[in-house]
Amino acid sequence: MKDIAFGQYYPVSSFVHKLDPRFKIVALITYIVAIFLANNYYGMAVCALGFFLIVLCSRVPFKKVFRSVKGIFVLLIFTAVLQIFFYQESENAKVWQWWIFTVSDESLLHAGFLVLRLALLVMVASILTFTTTPVALTDGLESLLYPLKLIRFPVHELALIMSIALRFIPTLMEETERIMNAQKARGADFESGSLLSRAKAVIPILIPLLISSFRRAEELGDAMDARCYAGSKVRTKYKKLKFSWRDLVGLLVIAAIVVGVVFLKRFGAV
């Protein structure tokens, strides 16, 4: 369970940590657009370079960032396999063929490209959660979505729900581990057997977890009421979001990546 690195704030002080969360969210979206704009390895190299720069400036260990790929590992393999065997564009560069499976230089290159794209995507997204506290993240989101309030979209509530969800990730992970241990001690087996029996084995974990989550939700509701929570009417904000020179530097970096990728598109697609 402890391998799930995604969503866990990494508490150090760094350039990236101090960026305005609104900027970070917009920058992440821009970066993702850049990744999808990049259509060849040159462009992807620029994205990767930008990624390494960001990680270095965030003081989050590379090991932790790389670990966030673990969650989508199966997806990556699946994508790669699909691409390698079923990618067909030109018939002339075949390396190996059997029945309906074809492997070519192109398909290999293409598969590598897609895997890189997906991995970068997830890792950069994880940098956002590593360097931004849930409250800052949701404050940023709330502020960015503010215009939606005009159409009566419950922006504040949505942001609060998100921050509470993030806050409870470690608590529920701990709880899951505890329940798993208890059921294991009663002979439950989660590691072997058919898919069906493994799915069934989840029930003794899931039900206690659900019940305790309901209990937690109820108690949290009471605690929030007792602490005078009454929606966003009179609410003030302790942490005010402010843009600083750092965001300007960040903006330049992101802009450089986008310009680089767009410029390098001229060298053709993979």
């Binding site: 993030l166 929570y229 609410r235 904000k237 302790y238 005010k240």
Partner: peptide, 24 residues
């Protein structure tokens, strides 16, 4: 565990005063 709203200590303590509109 069930009365902590925020992930960071100071953010959690701020929750009450924020609700009643205390200036920053």
């Amino acid at each position: 565990d069930n009365q902590t709203v925020a992930s960071i200590v100071e953010d959690d303590i701020a929750f009450g005063p924020e609700n009643i509109g205390v200036p920053r």
